[in-house]
Amino acid sequence: MLTKRIIPCLDVKEGRVVKGIQFVAIRDAGDPVELAKFYDEQGADELVFLDISASHEGRETMVDVVRQTASTLAIPFTVGGGIRTLDDMKRILRAGADKVSVNTSALERPALIQEGSEFFGTQCIVVAIDARYSEEDGTWMVYTHGGRNKTTWSAVDWAKEAVRLGAGEILLTSMNQDGEKSGFDLALTKAVREAVTIPVIASGGAGHAEHFYEVLAEEVDADAALAASIFHYKETSVAQVKEYLREKGVAVR
């Protein structure tokens, strides 16, 4: 039976992990490779690196981070942030990443999804969607540029379009829930999950192990759940979340 995946996400800026991570066990808490190893040992099923570098040099540094991570880690990882062209994808995937995730750049130029999936296969292309509920539209709308600009796409329609273009996976972040620690957006996740046939990773809002259960259990049935701060700030660990899920009868590795 295919297991549900727990995916820690690391924000990397100019080659360093940001958001002051607090682990005694780690020599250099800013080193993405050290942290990746730590999460691997904890039982993380995959990792996501989000490159938030603003500079060209920062992006070049990310390629080194990817290469080093791929040399040490024996689990899959995805890299997102700043991937705008097929060449950007090539640089990251050839350095050893398993998948790339695209967000704003794919909304600006949807053909990017197609180019990527035709060149590398759909399994390499993750489409990240930032969605916020709109009273006016009566549904969740997609935002670009880290949530600053509203698009005319609903989350469900954009997810379907992304699949048509060759997306292999959807990384769905609820902007309403992000940072709230009150649980994932179950209605949003379920709506997108039911609209597409590819795996959906739920993101935004994890505060406790129960939240992972809610979004991964049969009713919502997300394929994976992603979280950042609750793992970084040791509010819970990947191992604890998995133990809880196992007790509740959810298949985990």
Binding site: L2, T3, D45, Q123, G168, T197, I198, P199, D223
Partner: peptide, 18 residues
Amino acid sequence: SGMNEGQSYRVPHMGWNE
């Protein structure tokens, strides 16, 4: 096929399996 005995499932088969 994405369908087995009336039950639909995800394609690709992606993730950790026993």
